[in-house]
Design a protein around this nucleic acid. Structure first.
Length: 765
DNA sequence: TGTGAGTTGATTTTT
DNA sequence: TCAACTCACA
């Protein structure tokens, strides 16, 4: 009898779903139905008699966790499987065992902003704010160290620079400060739990036995701490199923280690490996473009995307004059499609490498009257007014939280200035007390004016009053905070639109507290509320249901899909981003990021770049990203290329591209008209001479970017090449970009050599 | 102590 | 460009 859960599954999918015991590695290409497979597998496990309480599913984002829960609810109604993010899982575990690490159960979770504030303060306190390094740098390095599981006293500087020296001195102080404030930063959540499991075998064994079936999503994004946690929980019961795609690893910058997935088979020799390579999402052409791009990466598991979907329209590669042209044209196209009834707003997504690029696009869409939503990582929860309000809650929940106290003690202004705070802090240090305890003794602190002491005393009594409501539901507490602290009064006073926005945001926070209360009827949900607010982000708030065009970064786009995708500003210095142009690993990660973006598209894909871009306040000549050269020309439709041949400054990337047919450029009139029905290309061309001058000026000032040799375009991995000295061979790998582009070649004699393309006599055959 | 103008400096991605 | 931070002044 065919199993209902297995209906409509391919052989490979079925293999993964029905695997019960032992390690399992699912290499799942984009659009391969991975989520479906994973959820079906959990349902299958449950049907096979595995108790739901023994199953633990770990994800990276709340969205992924929620989706998994929702799908499971339909597949296996009523079964409660623990699906959560790594950070949430660790936060809970830490909550239960906080004492082990010298924390209290009510510890506060510091987000990056909070920890940065602590670091700033410490740098000042210890006279390390010399300007040789920045707080951000120090924060980064501490975070990286934690991701590598290096504790404060095991920090191994990776660079011999000033920052590393400062970090070495400051990291222990930072950790002490966190401990004293009864706080843990994001990285600590993982680090502490990994350590805890390492040091406490009883606890490890107990949890290992409890979570017998563990699933990890996006395994390619795990860092060392996460890796150790997963391993520790899958020792006695190695029923560990990980899914991932090395080609979609885009979080190396925050410690994700590609080795974790590449070497999974070494960690668990008797692993079962299932490859899901068939793509159900995108057209053939989109798949081929994605495939060709990612083939340029060297550090990967070879895998071919294929699909049985229709060939589809050729992905478009479009060059615009400047970013306004880009934004207006795209907005115009989208508007036209919607008006023609061919598409709905929600069918479209626009991706970009960095948030700052969204603005022009927003303007374009707004002018066209196209509804859109921007998914941005810093919209709501990092706003000052929200963080201020939450800092009160944090302090109420954890009176050791010095950082929160510093944030709220004079917000809104209540006559406790910097000098006063400094004196209180000095007193606290002397007496080894928390800032709040020091505040209680304000009257006894010498050097503190009477007036200041009174203000501080008032603040303390405000706090005490607020704390009376700590045990109840969250919403009334928030209301009280906003009223009694004077936050509302201060915000109401500000009649500017921004001020009104802030007030509205605080109201929204209160509303969401109400929702939280409704979901958590039991008392004492304060910790849980703070935990939730600390571990969410705006991407989680993205509304799939609303009928709007989605604007988001490529990172946020992972896991999503849209019928029509635009990726804008694919230009040197932006994508790949400037500082990753040196290291091959970084470039490969950027390439994967583009791969992720491309593979979000179901039917239509448009890759965009402009010749001029206003960025960081100034206008620059923009050069097409080298990635664009790696795309298969024969699969693509190129628009806006080469209409001004020999204009002297534009990088001749199109030298190898077949020239578009003569006549006015803009090959698909229906798509290339703006709201007035004029071909946008013409408007753009008319505007262009004006900007050329600027560009030329800029160039003469800065010397201009150097053109890459045209032969860059003609090397492909697997392609045949010829060298005057070594003869004929095959390209094994291409790495690097621009003048540093490197080819690894195996000659037919068996000899392997590396060549810097810009300097070698190597030629394609 | 609080405010506002002026300056600076930094700009990736996120739990 | 824009936000955060500094510094001078009320």
């Amino acid at each position: 009898m065919p199993h209902p859960l297995l209906a409509n599954l391919t052989a490979a999918q079925r293999e993964a779903v029905t695997h019960v015991d032992g390690p399992l590695l699912i290499i799942a290409g984009p659009g391969s139905g991975k989520t479906r497979v994973v959820t079906h597998r959990v349902a299958y496990l449950l049907q096979e008699g595995v108790p739901a309480s023994q199953v633990l599913a770990m994800t990276f984002t709340n969205k992924a966790a929620d989706e998994m829960k929702a799908r499971l609810e339909t597949l296996a109604p009523g079964k409660r499987v623990w699906a959560s993010t790594f950070h949430k899982f660790c936060a809970r575990l830490l909550r239960m065992n906080a004492r082990m690490l010298g924390l209290d159960e009510n510890y506060t979770i510091y987000d990056t902003d909070d920890s940065l504030r602590v670091i700033r303060r410490l740098l000042k306190e210890h006279g390390e704010d010399s300007g040789y390094t920045s707080p951000e740098q120090v924060a980064r390095q501490i975070s990286n160290a934690k991701n590598r599981m290096e504790g404060p006293h095991h920090y191994r500087p990776r660079y011999g620079d000033a920052t590393a020296a400062v970090v070495q001195r400051l990291y222990p102080k930072y950790q002490e400060a966190l401990l004293a404030a009864n706080a843990a930063d994001f990285d600590d959540l993982l680090l502490h739990v990994a350590n805890m499991l390492h040091k406490n075998e009883d606890l490890r064994a107990q949890l290992d036995a409890r979570y017998r079936y563990i699933l990890v999503d996006e395994y390619q994004d795990t860092n060392l701490a996460q890796y150790l946690i997963v391993r520790a929980l899958s020792n006695d019961y190695p029923n560990l199923a990980v899914t991932g795609d090395p080609d979609q690893s885009i979080y190396g910058w925050r410690g994700a280690n590609l080795k974790n997935i590449l070497e999974f088979e070494k960690d668990y020799p008797d692993v079962k490996v299932v490859r899901l390579e068939q793509n159900y999402r995108s057209t053939q052409r989109i798949c081929r473009v994605a495939d060709a791009l990612i083939a340029n990466n060297f550090r990967r598991k070879k895998k071919t995307l294929f699909t049985e979907n229709a060939a589809g329209a050729p992905p478009r590669l479009v060059r615009y004059c400047d970013q306004r042209d880009e934004a207006d044209t795209i907005a115009g196209e989208i508007a036209a499609q919607i008006h023609a009834g061919r598409r709905r707003p929600r069918d479209f997504a626009v991706f970009y490498r960095i948030n700052a690029l969204s603005r022009t696009m927003e303007n374009g869409l707004r002018m066209m009257g196209v509804p859109y939503q921007v998914v941005s990582g810093v919209e709501f929860w990092k706003r000052k007014e929200i963080k201020d309000t939450l800092a009160y809650v944090q302090l109420v929940n954890n009176d050791k939280d010095d950082n929160a106290l510093l944030r709220v003690i004079n917000t809104p202004p209540r006559g406790i200035g910097a000098k006063t705070v400094e004196r209180i802090a000095a007193h606290a240090r002397r007496e080894r007390k928390t800032l709040l305890a020091a505040c209680r003794e304000a009257g006894m602190i010498q050097g503190l004016s009477n007036r200041a002491a009174v203000s501080v005393a008032k603040f303390v009594s405000l706090f005490d009053k607020l704390r009376e409501h700590a045990a109840g539901p969250v919403k009334p507490l928030l209301r009280r905070i906003v009223e009694a602290s004077g936050l509302r009064a201060a915000l109401t006073k500000d009649e500017s639109p921004e001020g009104q926005d802030r007030l509205a945001n605080v109201e929204e926070l209160i509303t969401s507290a109400g929702e939280f209360d409704a979901q958590h009827p039991e008392d004492g949900g304060l910790e849980a509320f703070l935990e939730e607010t600390a571990l969410v982000n705006d991407v989680d708030d993205w509304e799939e249901e609303t009928d709007k065009v989605t604007l988001m970064t490529l990172h946020a786009a992972k896991g999503l899909e849209f019928p029509c995708v635009y990726i804008i500003a694919i230009e040197q210095g932006i994508f790949p981003v400037q500082r990753s142009q040196d290291r091959d690993e970084d470039i490969e990660e950027e390439r994967r990021l583009l791969f992720v973006g491309i593979t979000r598209a179901e039917e239509e894909l448009t890759l965009c770049h402009a010749r001029l871009r206003d960025f960081r306040g100034s206008r620059r000549v923009a050069v097409a990203s080298p990635f664009l050269l790696e795309l298969p020309r024969e699969e693509m439709e190129r628009i806006g290329m080469g209409e001004t041949p020999g204009d002297g400054y534009a990088i001749d990337y199109e030298a190898d591209f077949t020239e578009p047919p003569p006549g006015p450029p803009g090959q698909s009139p229906t798509r290339q008209r703006d709201r007035d029905g004029n071909p946008t290309r013409r408007r753009g061309t008319a505007a262009f001479p004006l900007t050329v001058k600027t560009a030329a000026e800029l160039l003469s000032e800065k010397g201009g970017p150097s053109a890459d040799p045209p032969e860059l375009t003609t090397f492909t991995v697997g392609g045949r090449v010829k060298h005057p000295e070594y003869g004929v061979g095959e390209v094994l790998a291409l790495t690097g970009i621009g003048p540093k582009r490197l080819a690894r070649v195996r000659f037919d004699g068996g000899v392997e050599k590396k060549f810097i393309l810009s300097h070698s006599a190597l030629r394609p055959v």
